[in-house]
Amino acid sequence: MNELVHATTSDAFLPRVSLVIPIYNGEADLPELINCLLAQTYPKQKLEYLLVDNNSSDRTAVILQEIATKFPSLIRIESENQIQSSYAARNKGIRAATGEIVAFTDADCRPQPKWLEVLIAPFINLDIAIVVGEITALSPNNLLEHFAARQETLSQKHTLAHKFCPYGQTANLAIRRQALQKVGLFRPYLDSGGDADICWRIQQENIGRLEFAPEAIVQHRHRNTLKELESQWRRYGRSNRYLHELHGVELMRDITLKECGYRLARWLFKELPTDSIKSLAGRASLVDLLNTPIGLFTARARAAGQREAKILETAKIIETL
Rank of each mutant, 00 (worst) to 15 (best):
H247A: 15
L160G: 13
F297C: 06
L251R: 15
V287H: 03
R234Q: 15
K163D: 07
R176D: 10
E134H: 02
N81E: 07
I128D: 11
L74I: 12
D254W: 03
I255K: 08
N25C: 12
W267M: 10
R235F: 07
E80V: 07
I128V: 15
S231M: 11
S231V: 11
H247S: 14
V5C: 13
H244T: 14
R110G: 03
Q169A: 02
A88M: 06
D191F: 11
L33A: 03
T8V: 14
R176K: 15
W267Y: 10
I311Q: 07
W115Q: 13
S56R: 05
L272V: 04
I135P: 00
N206K: 06
T136K: 12
N55D: 11
F164W: 13
G93H: 08
P273L: 03
H6V: 07
I311G: 08
R209I: 01
Q204F: 03
L286K: 11
Y87Q: 05
D108K: 02
A174N: 07
P111C: 09
S155N: 12
T105G: 00
L185P: 00
A149S: 11
E230L: 09
Y49M: 03
I318E: 08
L321G: 12
N224W: 09
C199Q: 06
K70E: 11
R235W: 10
K114Y: 03
A39I: 09
K258H: 11
D58V: 07
K46L: 04
L296G: 02
E215L: 13
K92G: 08
I75H: 01
S79F: 04
Y42A: 05
E313K: 05
P113F: 07
L272D: 01
N142Q: 06
A265P: 02
I63V: 03
R307A: 01
S285T: 08
L226V: 12
D288Y: 07
L321T: 15
T314S: 15
A149H: 10
I255M: 13
V52C: 07
P72G: 00
L226S: 12
V183D: 05
E117N: 12
L264Y: 05
T225H: 14
V249L: 11
L47M: 12
N35T: 13
Q169P: 00
Y189R: 00
I207G: 04
K157W: 09
E228D: 14
